[in-house]
Design a protein around this nucleic acid. Sequence first.
DNA 1: GACCAGGCACATC
DNA 2: GATGTGCATGGT
Length: 208
Amino acid sequence: MYRSLYNRFGPQHWWPADSPFEVMVGSILTQNTSWANVEKAINNLKRKNLLAPRKLYGLSLRTLAAYLRPCGYYNVKAKRLKNFLSYFIGTYAGGTTAMARQGTERLRRELLAVSGIGPETADSILLYALHKPVFVVDAYTKRILSRHAILGEQADYHAVQAMFMRTMKPDVRLCNEYHALLVRLGKEYCHKRKPRCIQCPLKVKEKS
DNA sequence: GACCAGGCACATC
DNA sequence: GATGTGCATGGT
């Protein structure tokens, strides 16, 4: 699957961000939200030169929510972002390098303990901000596997992740590209309602 | 105007 | 444990 995706689409250059901290912010803002809308919110913060841990944490919930408006769920996300910042500043002084020195399992536990960070957000931060070899599962990944009759629709996050990581080399570069390619495939060929998998470039048996 | 987008927490049964 | 619901904007 990986090879046929890579041959079809080429490198995806993920995560689209200028810094690890921007990845962290983006991974919270993109929850159930299109990336185009997340970019608008992040640009609001960049324009005001606010994309730094302590600057963001210093904003009131109301003010922060106003900047986040274009990416939807702005009240919820303002709170989630501040929850994360409280942890990130309190534990690592807002330093991505210091955080990256810790082990993967410990960091995952810490991230999941933050209200508003679930498995996908935690793994996105681990992989794309901190460069830990973790396979990220998202809605596209599950849908693609289900449409190709590889896993059932009810397979939970950990089951899907385990299936990939059992047979994959735990390599940061590979995890990065693989997930990004699955999202690319999902956006173009694997929509929620309209099954257009007839033209799906994946050379895998399909469910009718 | 309905449907969807790189989820998650919380309530209820 | 399984299922349902609220959160919200902008693009198709």
